[in-house]
Computed example of a mutant assay.
Amino acid sequence: MRSITRLALAALCLAGTGLATAASFDCAKAGNATEKAICADPGLSRQDEALAALYLRQLETPDAGQWAAFLRRDQRDWIAVRNRECKGDTQCLKQDYERRIAFLGQPLLPWTGRYVQGQCPQDGRFLDVTPGDGGALDVEIYVCPDPRGNMLLQARDVLDAGRRMKVPDGGRCTRTFQFSADRITVADAPDCTSSLAGTYVRDPRRSPFKRE
């Protein structure tokens, strides 16, 4: 079996001890059905190495604040689900790797996260950002503490050169989202009848993909 690449080894080291089964491991130490299936299939092994390269590239995104901390946590969660759901099923693993590689390859991925205003989950609001289609970002704002109730806004748009997104919100109301490392500042136009204004701060411990 092909030995671990230097790039994959670097990704494994950066991921920390909590990612012992992260992308591109030593097949001589394969310890579960998933790892053994990856080592036994050349196509899966290549996917594993491609994912390692993308993962490392995303970890090294400059000026991204707590993005790396969030990504490490998200990668641990993905590995756990991969091992639990696919086990040694080669076809399941290949499909899962295809989805994960597509996810990690998105250029706007470092903006992904849950950004909090107030004392969530006790009170306040939170803003979820996920990559959308066509180079856009999906943004959703909710009232705490219910992570999927009381939605205040849902929109999709692209960032301009100044990392701004202007979102129409009914009638003549437009809200401006200013993105910076770990922070999104929302400004309301004068015609907005309700206020969502303020600064939302990324919480690397929470995910926009989970009900938490």
Results as ranks from 00 to 15, higher is better:
1 M>R: 14
3 S>Q: 12
4 I>S: 07
5 T>D: 14
8 A>E: 13
16 G>Y: 01
19 L>F: 00
21 T>W: 10
23 A>Y: 14
26 D>Q: 15
27 C>Q: 00
32 N>H: 04
33 A>K: 09
35 E>M: 15
42 P>F: 07
43 G>Q: 08
46 R>S: 14
51 L>N: 07
52 A>I: 01
54 L>H: 07
54 L>G: 03
58 Q>V: 04
61 T>K: 03
61 T>E: 08
62 P>K: 13
62 P>D: 09
62 P>Y: 10
65 G>E: 10
66 Q>E: 13
66 Q>A: 12
73 R>K: 12
75 Q>W: 01
76 R>W: 03
81 V>D: 11
84 R>A: 14
84 R>S: 10
85 E>I: 09
85 E>Y: 09
88 G>D: 08
89 D>S: 08
91 Q>E: 12
91 Q>K: 07
91 Q>H: 10
91 Q>A: 12
93 L>Q: 02
98 E>K: 14
100 R>G: 01
109 L>V: 07
110 P>D: 05
112 T>D: 00
113 G>D: 01
115 Y>V: 05
116 V>W: 02
117 Q>H: 08
118 G>F: 02
119 Q>Y: 05
119 Q>L: 08
120 C>S: 08
122 Q>P: 04
125 R>S: 09
126 F>T: 06
128 D>V: 03
128 D>Q: 12
132 G>Q: 02
132 G>K: 01
135 G>R: 02
136 A>I: 04
137 L>P: 04
138 D>P: 02
140 E>Q: 10
141 I>K: 01
142 Y>A: 07
142 Y>K: 09
145 P>S: 11
153 L>A: 08
154 Q>H: 11
159 L>W: 07
163 R>H: 15
165 M>F: 08
169 D>H: 15
169 D>N: 10
176 T>E: 15
177 F>N: 04
178 Q>Y: 13
179 F>V: 14
181 A>K: 11
182 D>L: 03
182 D>C: 02
187 A>N: 12
190 P>W: 05
199 T>P: 03
200 Y>Q: 01
202 R>K: 12
202 R>P: 01
202 R>Y: 03
210 K>C: 01
211 R>T: 15
212 E>Y: 12
